[in-house]
Design a protein around this nucleic acid. Sequence first.
DNA 1: CCGTATCCCGCATGATACTG
DNA 2: CAGTATCATGCGGGATACGG
Lengths: 130, 130
Amino acid sequence: MVQGNMDVTGGQHDPAHGDCRKVSRILARVGDKWSVLIVMLLGDGPRRFNEIRRMVGGISQRMLTLTLRGLERDGMVTRTVYPTVPPRVEYALTPLGQSLREPVQALGTWALANIDRVDAAQQEFDSRTA
Amino acid sequence: MVQGNMDVTGGQHDPAHGDCRKVSRILARVGDKWSVLIVMLLGDGPRRFNEIRRMVGGISQRMLTLTLRGLERDGMVTRTVYPTVPPRVEYALTPLGQSLREPVQALGTWALANIDRVDAAQQEFDSRTA
DNA sequence: CCGTATCCCGCATGATACTG
DNA sequence: CAGTATCATGCGGGATACGG
């Protein structure tokens, strides 16, 4: 997905930035439209498929499946099938997924605290440009 | 870009999740391929256009321009043109951009600390699936 | 040196319909 | 209820060429 194409020519990175490529893979996950939303939502406890669907609102069945599969693959969530009828499938955060909530929360807090400034900057920029 | 289409039907969100839509706009920025990389890079001080280009490595001229414009619009970076010949343009972080580095650092730290676990989980998942 | 303008392609996402 | 399958599409992003 995010192909590691940085520094192909042996460019000069600050050592502190050396692992950017690896980090970018995670950042991509954080940036995608639904993953973070679902991780935060599952922080309150396990949820069923359609329960998540309703709570998120606006996500297609397909994308929910894909997103949950991705998170499961990354070791962020577990998928538990109860062989009842009708079927019951529960998704829950793993410890790894739980631990991700902390830095994501921090980012969310920052966003809430600064969204006004960003909006203002955008309006100012747009009027200056127009 | 990220259209606020959550909760259109008056669904039930935990109050703590109430501002997800707004936050998502910021998260999208964090998730895009180059923005965060550039913000972190500019943390070490102002840089010129092609200087950034070389340091990032693998970014097209087009995408660098677009990314920098976006960051400028969001109030994250300033663009300063020195009317010399040849032209010299410097990009620097604003205080707002500086403040973003903290939560992003946290996320980066988390990523570095857990990337092994993620990789392991992926391999395990893939072998289990195959 | 620092861009802008075009063209083009692939993937991410959505809509819809079907299944166990 | 919890998916899978298929089709359509918009946009992110690269390549290239040109301009001040």
